[in-house]
Amino acid sequence: MKKENQQHDEDRKDEDLVSGIKIEHNKVPKLLVAVFYVVAIWAIGYAIFMPGKLEVEPEAAPQDNKGELIFTGTCLNCHATGAAPDLKGVTDRLKEEDIKNVIKNGRNTMPAIGHLYTDKEIDKVYEFLEDYR
């Protein structure tokens, strides 16, 4: 009985009264302390070892089908619809220089698109046209 009272008194000592609200002094739960430590260790590890961003792989080998991509993405918008002549076997009908010149500077109703591509890309388009028949 006496012991119980003592216990009770000790509990009471552990209470503050602020603005009419009682505040106990319970210990921080052990699980929570463990979580705090894990988070702290993780934070230090992340700061030291991680890049902080997703690592983006450098672009794979230069695209081998660039010529085809430009051809289907740009040329065929007109040359497959009947709005402009069919390009099958065009390399037999025109010289390499002339074809590249038409791509760069346009002809009749075809607009100049040279400013959109590098010389290398236009070479690729020509290479593709050689096999397009």
């Binding site: 503050d16 609200i21 505040i23 002094h25 921080v28």
Partner: peptide, 16 residues
């Protein structure tokens, strides 16, 4: 503020 008032119970831990 609301919890101790609504439940009439003391706040659990000053340290937390």
């Amino acid at each position: 503020y609301l919890l101790p008032k609504l439940t009439g119970r003391p706040l659990y831990s000053h340290q937390l």
